[in-house]
């Protein structure tokens, strides 16, 4: 299982991560970043750390950290 973290400062609210997430863990939040975009929020309870959001995000918002410390790349 990975732990998701978000750099919402980079988010442009495109919604591609929401489309990719198979667990419904992502949604547009009520918060707005410095660029004026309403940013993405993740629900930790639903996230399984699959990394699909990382893969499709054009703006480098997501980091999935392996809680065992080893690395895996695709």
């Amino acid at each position: 299982m990975g732990k998701i973290s978000l750099n919402t400062g980079y988010c442009k609210s495109c919604g591609l991560c929401i489309r990719a997430c198979t667990r419904g863990a992502l949604s547009i939040s009520g918060k707005t970043n410095e660029k004026g975009y309403r940013v993405i929020a993740a629900d930790d309870m639903k996230c399984v750390g699959c990394g699909l959001c990382y893969t499709v995000c054009p703006d480098y918002v997501f980091t999935i950290e392996d809680q065992t410390g080893s690395e895996w790349t695709v």
Binding site: G2, G9, Y10, K12, S13, C14, G15, L16, Y37, G49, G51, Y54, T55, V56, C57, P58, D59, Y60, F62, T63, I64, E65, D66, Q67, T68, G69, S70, E71, W72, T73, V74
Partner: peptide, 27 residues
């Protein structure tokens, strides 16, 4: 087990439009 983070070779936020595919290709 897996870690996915932005490669060090990405300098920071890009300036492409929202949803543009360039951002993915560059990564």
């Amino acid at each position: 087990a897996m870690t996915k983070k932005i490669p060090d070779t990405i300098k920071g936020a890009n300036t492409f439009c929202p949803g543009c595919g360039h951002g993915v290709v560059v990564r």
